[in-house]
Design a protein around this nucleic acid. Structure first.
Length: 257
DNA sequence: ATGGTAGCATCGCTA
């Protein structure tokens, strides 16, 4: 089962590229973030014609998440589950695909450490843990994936000196990511490539950052222990960041046996 | 210290 996460940065602006990439790579499950579409603007027919069932949770203009699946798409939950304080933004969508409970997440950016949006980011991560506890047990087949806007370690940052007192690398947000892992999730790319260096999933559009190798690995596929031994390979398709009108994120692919 | 680019409901905000 091929699972992909990709922050597409506007599905309206990216549809042609996404279609071509999906036709080539044939994911079984594709989790997208930042569709920036209202639900009634989501191009479901396009993807259904390619063999996918679709779930989209959007609001238009900003945010928006989707799960596409060829291996079933059941028990869809938009936003946080149960009685968790709902997120006013469309940032999390959960469904069962191929026997795996999958949450597709667009974690708030945080902006800066002194911004209210950073407090919101930390609260959001606390609620993601509560959501996970509500939806699954650590012994289940579980994936939590998406744009975390957190680089797990300094090895996931092109130059940590550039990120002093910045979001994406701060201890409180990394601690919360670790708490998710303590619950029973593993960063499947890092598990497969423990010594990988200079592998990133996002590059700023500005300043030629992509071509200069100035990126962050912030798009993650976290899997439960039951899935770790099923990983056959894991890769960031940086080719998808090249060419005309790319997203600023590259897709991350994980193949499970 | 700033700006650089891209996308949006665009002339300001978000990333």
């Amino acid at each position: 089962m091929r699972v992909v996460t990709w922050n597409v940065n506007s599905l309206r602006a990216r549809l042609e590229r996404v279609e071509e990439w999906v036709a080539e790579v044939q994911p079984d499950v594709l989790c997208m973030q930042e569709t920036k579409l209202a639900d009634d603007a989501f191009p479901a027919l396009t993807f259904e014609a390619m063999g996918y069932e679709c779930a989209h949770y959007g609001q238009g203009q900003w945010n928006g998440v989707a799960i596409l699946s060829k291996v079933g798409l059941d028990d869809v939950v938009a936003n946080f589950a149960g009685d968790i304080e709902p997120d006013p933004d469309a940032r999390i969508l959960t469904a069962t695909c191929g026997g795996v409970r999958i949450s597709c997440c667009y974690v708030p950016n945080g902006r800066s450490l002194d911004d209210d949006h950073y407090t919101y980011k930390l609260s959001w991560l606390d609620r993601l843990l509560a959501h996970l506890e509500h939806e699954s047990d650590p012994g289940d087949d579980v994936i939590v994936t998406g744009d975390f806007n957190i680089a797990p370690t300094d090895a996931d940052v092109y130059d940590i000196r550039k990120f002093a007192n910045a979001t994406h690398v701060s201890a409180p947000e990394r601690d919360r990511l670790q708490t998710l892992c303590d619950w029973g999730l593993v960063d499947l790319f890092r598990h497969q490539h423990p010594d990988a260096d200079k592998v990133y999933s996002w590059w700023d559009y500005r300043g030629g950052d992509f071509h200069q190798g100035r990126g962050l690995r912030i798009d993650l596929v976290l899997g439960s222990a039951s899935l770790v031994d099923r990983v056959e390979w894991a890769v960031v398709d940086r080719n998808a960041r090249k060419g005309k009108q790319p997203s600023d994120h590259a897709p991350v692919i994980v193949d499970l046996a």
